[in-house]
């Protein structure tokens, strides 16, 4: 009689030879799954050593400045020429939001903060010589404010044409991995639209350099960059350096050029 091993699912048990066949099939899938797990992991890119000290609050004291972007400048002492050196700590809020709003709220109760020595509590983010403080508790990050004086050094670099990718510094320098490129694009766009200052990551001749991005005349730009965030682009503008951060002021947003990627067709540049 044919079909001796006909399977009927609502009976409590399947015929023996069928059971044997199926359990062999299940055993066979194990090595296949292992091969997939191993190769999927081993053939992805490594994750960078950037750090977000999640769950661990630190207090940072430094001179507050809003220019070019909100940051605390922690004095490191004087250099050979007797000029004050600073380590800048970019300020960002909890979530995908810039620090401006919370700082203004603190000012509403404690008076103007610009140029004063401010102590904030938050979560540190750092990588590649740059650091940020997430004001995890927003305006409640405030610890104290004292008098102080800021002696920033500004150096003009001049007109530059740079190639790289606009990243949101919060994710790039620690919160997410990967915190750049296509998979992360939407998140970077949300962060920058939320007021986190855009950073241009320039990769040229094997070295990596970072620029804060501003519009003509030092105007803050966020959503204007929406359609090119996390893409390879070239930017043209005036560059200068304030203490340990370089800045590029883009003269003309419509001059931003997309650089072709991986041979896939490029769309015409979206108008801003």
């Amino acid at each position: 009689m044919a079909k001796e091993n006909f399977y009927i699912g609502y009976l409590p048990s399947a015929p023996k030879p069928l059971k044997r066949f199926l359990s062999r099939f299940v055993w066979l899938t194990i090595p296949i799954l292992l091969v997939f797990a191993v190769s999927l992991v081993l053939y992805q890119k490594d994750y960078v050593t950037s750090t977000f000290e999640i769950g661990q609050l630190s207090t940072i004291e430094g001179m507050l400045t809003y220019e070019p972007v909100p940051m605390l400048k922690v004095p490191l002492g004087k250099n050979d020429q007797g000029k004050e050196q600073y380590q800048s700590v970019l300020l960002v809020d909890f979530g995908k939001k810039g620090a401006e709003e919370s700082l203004r709220k603190i000012e509403a109760t404690h008076g103007a903060l610009e140029g004063k020595s401010l102590t904030l509590e938050g979560t540190l983010i750092y990588y590649d010589g740059k650091s940020l403080l997430e004001m995890t508790k927003s305006e409640n990050a405030f610890v104290k404010v004292e008098g102080g004086s800021l002696a920033s050094q500004t150096k003009i670099i001049g007109k530059v044409n740079l190639r790289g990718e606009i990243a949101d510094p919060k994710c790039y320098f620690g919160v997410m991995k990967p915190g750049e490129g296509k998979p992360h694009r939407s998140c970077a766009a949300r962060c920058i639209a939320g007021g986190i200052p855009p950073v241009f990551k320039v990769e040229q001749n094997g070295t990596v350099d970072y620029y804060l991005v501003k519009g003509a005349g030092g105007k803050a730009i966020y959503e204007e960059l929406f359609s090119i965030i996390a893409e390879r682009v070239s930017l043209e503008g005036q560059a200068y350096q304030v203490d340990d951060w370089k800045v590029i002021e883009i003269d003309d947003l419509s001059e931003i050029k997309r650089l072709s990627q991986g041979g896939l067709p490029n769309p015409p540049m979206c108008s801003f």
Partner: peptide, 9 residues
């Protein structure tokens, strides 16, 4: 968050 519906890459 990503308006590039006309793009491939």
């Amino acid at each position: 968050s990503n308006p590039n519906y006309a793009s491939v890459s």
